[in-house]
């Protein structure tokens, strides 16, 4: 894999193209979200879902007919993972007895089936979850912003939060485009993506900070480019191993965590890209300069510029 050793690749050279690409992706995602919306899972909408395992593959149309004859409305019948397993979702019905009843009704066809899993979620619980999740996402972003601004500098704070929002929006856009079910596990994946992408961004930011302090020549663009170059091998290796693991999870983790794995796979790809082309470009755009990161003079001396608010990392941090 990458072992870049020649002249630094000019990562920042194509940053305008990348910025246009990112903006297009984010706007596209927002438009798709506005039109399609998310295919929210049971956790958020409330309702009932029943997963059944048949001994022989049933005809889905037969099941639909039986259900329609039994007086159910607004239901979805689909295969879940295998031909013999069937997922019935009843979105509008808020009744906790429903799952057992559906199973009974379907038994009347004479086919052998077994209830594998059933869920009933009250609408209120679903609504609250929607609110809490949105709040959780925002809170996570806010905390990251504050922490990074404290540890690094305000511009870095902004430059690490914007890529996170970028990643989240694009993944939501992908889920909206393909109408994949967005449930609690996907939400968890989304938050994991935030953590992952952040991890990436911080590593790059850390190197940028270090280089600004170390390298006395070159403009900001040069220094940032050099920093990305120095970390690219690590970035790709980490993303590579993580992707390998995620693909294993996707292939063998079972139907129940498929969407979780998909969200993370896209998340890792987008997150790796954004830590370079969104975070670093943002830093450049915000006009980060050596002055932002000079270690402030010791107390008692007069600071040269008021902007120098970056604190020196605590002594223990620089020690092994």
């Amino acid at each position: 894999m990458p072992n870049v050793e020649k002249k630094p690749i000019d990562f920042m050279g194509i940053r305008k193209v990348a910025a246009a690409f990112s903006i297009a992706l984010v706007l596209g995602s927002l438009i798709i979200l506005a039109i399609n919306g998310l295919n929210l899972g049971l956790d958020f909408t409330g309702g009932t879902s029943v997963e059944l395992e048949y001994s022989e593959a049933p005809a889905l149309d037969d099941i639909r007919n039986v259900l329609a004859d039994s007086g159910y409305e607004n239901f979805v019948v689909q295969n879940f993972g295998a031909e013999t397993s069937v997922l019935v979702r009843l979105s509008d019905a808020f009744d906790d007895e429903l799952a057992a009843q559906v199973t009974e009704d379907l038994r009347t066809t004479g086919q052998e089936l077994e209830l594998v899993r059933s869920s009933f979620v009250g609408s209120q619980v679903g609504d609250e979850l929607k609110e809490d999740s949105g709040l959780g996402l925002l809170l996570a972003l806010a905390v990251v912003l504050v922490y990074v601004a404290m540890r690094f500098q305000a511009k870095f704070g902004l430059a690490s939060v914007v890529p996170l929002a970028h990643d989240v929006i694009i993944i939501l856009g992908i889920f909206s485009l393909f109408q994949w079910t967005f449930d609690l596990s996907v939400l968890a994946a989304l938050l994991a993506v935030i953590g992952y992408s952040l991890n990436d961004t911080i590593v790059v930011a850390d190197r940028i900070r270090e280089n600004f302090r170390k390298m006395r020549v070159g403009d900001s663009e040069h220094i940032i480019n050099e920093s990305i170059h120095q970390t690219i091998s690590r970035t790709l290796n980490t993303s590579g191993t993580t992707l390998v693991v995620l693909i294993a999870l996707y292939l063998f983790g079972g139907e129940a965590i498929n969407n979780f794995a998909i969200a993370l796979i896209f998340g890792v790809i987008v997150g790796t890209y954004s830590s370079i082309y969104v975070a670093a470009s943002m830093l450049l755009a915000l006009g980060v300069s050596r002055d932002d990161l000079v270690i402030p003079p010791k107390e008692g001396l007069v600071g040269q510029e008021g902007e120098d608010e970056e604190e020196q990392p605590p002594e223990w941090l620089n020690r092994m």
Partner: peptide, 8 residues
């Protein structure tokens, strides 16, 4: 009952 889940 606000929520119910059965797992076989």
């Amino acid at each position: 009952f606000a929520e119910e889940r059965t797992i076989g």
